[in-house]
Amino acid sequence: MEQQILWNRFLKGDKEALELIFRTYFDELYSFGLKMTHNTETVEDSLQDMFFKLWKNRNNLNGISNIKGYLVKALRHHIYDNLNWRNRFVNCETPPENLFDIEFSHEDFLITEQLNQETREKLIHILNKLTNSQREAIYLRFFRGYDFKDISDIMEISVQSVRNAIHRGLLAMREMTP
């Protein structure tokens, strides 16, 4: 509710509200961006572009109920565009970087103490072998706690496709379970 009030203030052109929104969702957006690409510059630029555009288009933004989901989706678009464009420069001989290549690393699981080195490596290996959409859906669902509807909005696929992607991802993790 508080966020919605803040959002409405922003829609009316309140720059302070914009700054608060920016800072509120910074962690969420930044870490999501860093999962899409390792290039911090791309993430930072996309974040700036996204909020700048948001500010310029604020008059056409009525009716957004899920602010966090909307912002993640918008950022995803900007990063996609930036990466896509960057890839245009890549010589054809070197295949372009995989988009949405959410990649997991040891750092992601360091906090999980009961995971020994071997299990952790196995998990990372399995996660990174999933398809892009499976990986992204799993990431949004379990790492970020979005519900199916949010994920469907963010990834712009149906709720059923989200469920399927997550389900397949979970099945692939079968050998991880005790």
Partner: peptide, 14 residues
């Protein structure tokens, strides 16, 4: 077990 390892990842805070 799975939910635990998938949800207790490192959260980035700036």
């Amino acid at each position: 077990f799975l939910s635990q390892i998938l949800t207790s990842h490192k959260k980035i805070k700036y």
